[in-house]
Amino acid sequence: MNRQIIAISGGGFSTEENAYIDQYLLKIPRKQDRLKITFIATASNDAQGYIGKFYEAFKEEEPSHLTIQDFALDHVQEMVNASDIIYVGGGNTQYMLTVWRETGFDNVLKQAYEQGVILAGISAGALCWFERCYSESHDDGFEEFQGLGILQGTFCPHYNDKKRQVAFDQWTSKQDNMFTYALNDNESLHFINEQVVAKIRSYTND
């Protein structure tokens, strides 16, 4: 059974209708039935508008979501394992990882991944899978912190943002022998068994 992750830099359902990367994601399980896709909006502190966009985008499937309060449910592992896809939204990466670790949801996701549940995420939801993160800090700068470590190295979403690009390049120049991925918006990476197999670039009509 393959283990798969889709790391999305920017785009997806939150900014586009019928986003190509979301259609790509839905084709991976190759099932005839509707897909069970679960949204995790921890990084936006369970923003209701964001969750609503998710339900609208995936209304043809079997969408659901888990809030921070749901992480304490006794059967949360079974709920996550029953999903075909876990889709993690964007927002504050460090806050999200802190919540996951405090509640044990980080281990829930890791176990589901080992069982073949596809992990996908945009921005913070893409960065979190890597060993090391370098992202916004509370003082409007950037700082390093630990990711979940499922994928080697580090990842920079929104690399087309000049401030982020400069900060990330300065940080990575001081790191030794680290896998580094940097993507502009509307670019994504597909990992199978922790190895990158495809870079997907989509285009909008903007």
Rank of each mutant, 00 (worst) to 15 (best):
I51K: 06
H65T: 09
A47H: 14
Q48L: 13
D70K: 08
N45T: 10
N45P: 03
S44L: 05
E56F: 01
M79L: 15
L73W: 09
S44Q: 10
A43P: 02
D74M: 05
A41N: 13
F58W: 02
K59N: 08
K59I: 04
K53F: 02
F58E: 00
K59A: 07
A47S: 14
Q69A: 14
F58A: 00
Q69N: 15
P63L: 03
D74H: 06
G49L: 05
L73F: 08
T67Q: 12
D70S: 13
E78H: 09
E78G: 13
D46Q: 10
Y55C: 02
A72M: 11
K53S: 01
V76Y: 05
Q48W: 07
H65P: 04
Q48H: 10
N45R: 12
T42P: 02
Y55H: 08
A72F: 14
S64A: 15
E61K: 01
A47K: 12
E78F: 06
N45Y: 11
A41L: 05
H65S: 12
S64Q: 11
E60V: 01
G49M: 04
E62K: 09
N45G: 01
T67E: 13
Q48S: 15
V76M: 07
D74S: 12
Y55R: 04
E56M: 02
F54T: 01
F71L: 08
S44I: 06
L73N: 12
E78N: 13
E60H: 06
F71Q: 07
